[in-house]
Amino acid sequence: MPEEEAVPGFAIACVREDGKWRCTALNSSILSELDAAITELRKVRSTGAVIGLLGVDDQFFLLLRPSPRGISLLLSDAAAALDYDIAADALDLLRVEPPSEDDEEVWPEGALDILADIGLPAAELQVIVGEVDLFPDEQLQMVAQRCGFADEFNMLLDSIPQ
Protein backbone atom coordinates (compact mmCIF):
# COMPACT_ATOMS: atom_id res chain seq x y z
CA MET A 1 0.00 0.00 0.00
CA PRO A 2 1.51 3.37 -0.95
CA GLU A 3 2.21 5.75 1.90
CA GLU A 4 -0.35 8.52 2.06
CA GLU A 5 0.81 12.07 1.68
CA ALA A 6 0.79 13.89 5.00
CA VAL A 7 -2.06 16.34 5.47
CA PRO A 8 -0.93 19.66 6.97
CA GLY A 9 -2.58 20.82 10.15
CA PHE A 10 -2.87 19.88 13.81
CA ALA A 11 -4.76 17.52 16.08
CA ILE A 12 -5.30 18.28 19.76
CA ALA A 13 -7.13 16.28 22.41
CA CYS A 14 -8.66 18.34 25.21
CA VAL A 15 -9.68 16.57 28.40
CA ARG A 16 -11.63 17.89 31.36
CA GLU A 17 -11.03 16.17 34.66
CA ASP A 18 -11.79 17.45 38.14
CA GLY A 19 -12.78 20.82 36.71
CA LYS A 20 -9.44 21.38 34.95
CA TRP A 21 -8.62 21.19 31.25
CA ARG A 22 -5.56 19.46 29.83
CA CYS A 23 -4.62 19.65 26.14
CA THR A 24 -2.38 17.12 24.39
CA ALA A 25 -1.04 17.11 20.84
CA LEU A 26 -1.96 14.07 18.78
CA ASN A 27 0.10 12.81 15.87
CA SER A 28 -0.87 14.84 12.80
CA SER A 29 -0.87 11.63 10.73
CA ILE A 30 -4.46 11.13 11.92
CA LEU A 31 -5.55 14.08 9.77
CA SER A 32 -5.75 11.84 6.72
CA GLU A 33 -8.29 9.35 8.07
CA LEU A 34 -11.26 9.75 10.40
CA ASP A 35 -11.01 6.22 11.82
CA ALA A 36 -7.42 6.90 12.89
CA ALA A 37 -8.48 10.13 14.59
CA ILE A 38 -11.32 8.41 16.44
CA THR A 39 -9.04 5.55 17.51
CA GLU A 40 -6.45 7.96 18.90
CA LEU A 41 -9.08 9.96 20.77
CA ARG A 42 -10.52 6.82 22.32
CA LYS A 43 -7.04 6.01 23.65
CA VAL A 44 -7.17 9.20 25.73
CA ARG A 45 -8.42 7.97 29.07
CA SER A 46 -10.54 10.31 31.10
CA THR A 47 -13.44 10.30 33.50
CA GLY A 48 -14.56 13.60 32.00
CA ALA A 49 -15.09 15.09 28.57
CA VAL A 50 -12.64 14.26 25.77
CA ILE A 51 -12.76 16.51 22.72
CA GLY A 52 -10.68 16.31 19.57
CA LEU A 53 -9.95 19.56 17.74
CA LEU A 54 -8.51 19.00 14.28
CA GLY A 55 -7.44 21.87 12.06
CA VAL A 56 -6.87 20.61 8.53
CA ASP A 57 -4.66 22.37 5.98
CA ASP A 58 -5.87 25.89 6.92
CA GLN A 59 -9.16 24.94 5.22
CA PHE A 60 -11.59 23.47 7.78
CA PHE A 61 -11.85 21.92 11.20
CA LEU A 62 -13.39 18.89 12.83
CA LEU A 63 -14.64 18.56 16.37
CA LEU A 64 -14.80 14.97 17.61
CA ARG A 65 -16.23 13.74 20.87
CA PRO A 66 -16.16 10.04 21.66
CA SER A 67 -18.63 8.60 24.14
CA PRO A 68 -19.84 5.14 25.11
CA ARG A 69 -22.73 5.68 22.64
CA GLY A 70 -20.40 6.35 19.71
CA ILE A 71 -18.81 9.45 18.26
CA SER A 72 -20.27 12.94 17.92
CA LEU A 73 -18.67 15.14 15.33
CA LEU A 74 -18.90 18.45 13.57
CA LEU A 75 -17.31 19.17 10.19
CA SER A 76 -16.99 22.94 9.70
CA ASP A 77 -17.24 22.82 5.89
CA ALA A 78 -19.07 20.03 4.09
CA ALA A 79 -17.45 21.03 0.77
CA ALA A 80 -14.08 19.94 2.19
CA ALA A 81 -15.24 16.38 1.48
CA LEU A 82 -14.52 17.03 -2.20
CA ASP A 83 -10.79 17.42 -1.51
CA TYR A 84 -10.00 15.73 1.81
CA ASP A 85 -10.49 12.08 2.76
CA ILE A 86 -11.07 12.82 6.43
CA ALA A 87 -13.92 15.20 5.55
CA ALA A 88 -15.42 12.64 3.15
CA ASP A 89 -15.16 10.04 5.94
CA ALA A 90 -17.00 12.42 8.27
CA LEU A 91 -19.87 12.84 5.80
CA ASP A 92 -19.99 9.06 5.33
CA LEU A 93 -20.28 8.57 9.08
CA LEU A 94 -23.01 11.21 9.22
CA ARG A 95 -24.73 9.59 6.22
CA VAL A 96 -24.72 12.90 4.35
CA GLU A 97 -24.13 13.26 0.63
CA PRO A 98 -21.16 15.47 -0.29
CA PRO A 99 -21.99 18.76 -1.98
CA SER A 100 -21.66 19.16 -5.71
CA GLU A 101 -18.42 20.45 -7.23
CA ASP A 102 -19.99 23.80 -8.15
CA ASP A 103 -21.44 24.54 -4.73
CA GLU A 104 -19.69 27.66 -3.44
CA GLU A 105 -21.39 27.87 -0.05
CA VAL A 106 -19.72 26.85 3.20
CA TRP A 107 -21.89 25.02 5.70
CA PRO A 108 -21.24 22.67 8.60
CA GLU A 109 -22.45 19.11 8.95
CA GLY A 110 -22.87 17.21 12.17
CA ALA A 111 -23.69 18.07 15.75
CA LEU A 112 -23.66 21.83 16.30
CA ASP A 113 -24.60 21.08 19.92
CA ILE A 114 -21.48 18.92 20.40
CA LEU A 115 -20.13 21.30 23.09
CA ALA A 116 -23.39 22.67 24.47
CA ASP A 117 -22.92 20.93 27.83
CA ILE A 118 -19.53 22.60 28.36
CA GLY A 119 -20.41 26.19 27.55
CA LEU A 120 -20.80 26.50 23.79
CA PRO A 121 -24.44 26.42 22.64
CA ALA A 122 -25.23 25.33 19.08
CA ALA A 123 -26.21 28.86 18.00
CA GLU A 124 -22.83 30.26 19.08
CA LEU A 125 -20.91 27.43 17.43
CA GLN A 126 -22.88 28.16 14.24
CA VAL A 127 -21.66 31.78 14.40
CA ILE A 128 -18.03 30.64 14.84
CA VAL A 129 -18.31 28.22 11.91
CA GLY A 130 -19.84 31.02 9.85
CA GLU A 131 -16.73 33.18 10.29
CA VAL A 132 -15.37 32.06 6.92
CA ASP A 133 -12.71 34.80 6.85
CA LEU A 134 -10.94 33.13 9.79
CA PHE A 135 -8.53 30.22 9.58
CA PRO A 136 -9.51 26.99 11.35
CA ASP A 137 -7.00 27.56 14.16
CA GLU A 138 -8.57 30.97 14.83
CA GLN A 139 -12.06 29.45 14.87
CA LEU A 140 -10.90 26.70 17.23
CA GLN A 141 -9.29 29.32 19.48
CA MET A 142 -12.74 30.91 19.75
CA VAL A 143 -14.19 27.49 20.61
CA ALA A 144 -11.51 26.98 23.26
CA GLN A 145 -12.18 30.42 24.71
CA ARG A 146 -15.91 29.75 25.09
CA CYS A 147 -15.35 26.32 26.62
CA GLY A 148 -12.72 27.52 29.09
CA PHE A 149 -9.48 25.98 27.84
CA ALA A 150 -8.08 28.78 25.67
CA ASP A 151 -4.81 29.18 27.61
CA GLU A 152 -3.99 25.46 27.46
CA PHE A 153 -5.06 25.21 23.81
CA ASN A 154 -3.12 28.28 22.64
CA MET A 155 0.05 27.31 24.48
CA LEU A 156 0.00 23.86 22.89
CA LEU A 157 -0.98 25.16 19.44
CA ASP A 158 1.97 27.59 19.52
CA SER A 159 4.34 24.67 20.18
CA ILE A 160 3.12 22.49 17.29
CA PRO A 161 5.04 22.86 14.01
CA GLN A 162 2.58 23.44 11.19
Rank of each mutant, 00 (worst) to 15 (best):
M1C: 13
P2A: 12
E4Y: 07
E4K: 06
E5S: 13
P8A: 08
G9S: 07
I12M: 02
I12E: 01
V15R: 09
G19L: 07
K20F: 10
K20I: 07
R22W: 00
T24V: 14
A25F: 00
L31Q: 07
S32F: 02
S32L: 01
L34P: 09
L34M: 10
D35Y: 07
A36V: 02
A36I: 06
A37D: 07
I38A: 09
T39V: 15
T39H: 12
E40S: 15
L41R: 04
R42L: 13
R42Y: 13
V44C: 10
R45P: 08
T47F: 00
G48W: 00
A49W: 07
V50H: 05
V50A: 02
V50G: 04
G52P: 11
G52C: 10
L53Y: 00
L53E: 07
L53V: 15
L54F: 06
L54Q: 05
L54I: 11
G55H: 01
V56H: 03
V56R: 03
D58K: 14
F60W: 05
F60H: 07
F61G: 03
L62K: 05
L62F: 03
L62C: 05
L64W: 08
L64D: 08
L64V: 14
P66Q: 08
P66G: 06
S67I: 10
P68T: 13
L74Q: 12
L74C: 09
L75S: 06
S76T: 12
S76V: 12
D77F: 04
D77Q: 10
A78N: 03
A80K: 02
Y84P: 01
D85Q: 05
I86E: 00
A87M: 01
A87D: 00
D89M: 05
D89C: 11
L91Q: 05
L91C: 06
L91R: 11
L93D: 04
E97N: 10
P99A: 09
S100F: 00
D103T: 15
D103E: 14
E105R: 14
E105S: 13
V106A: 03
P108W: 00
P108I: 03
E109M: 14
L115C: 14
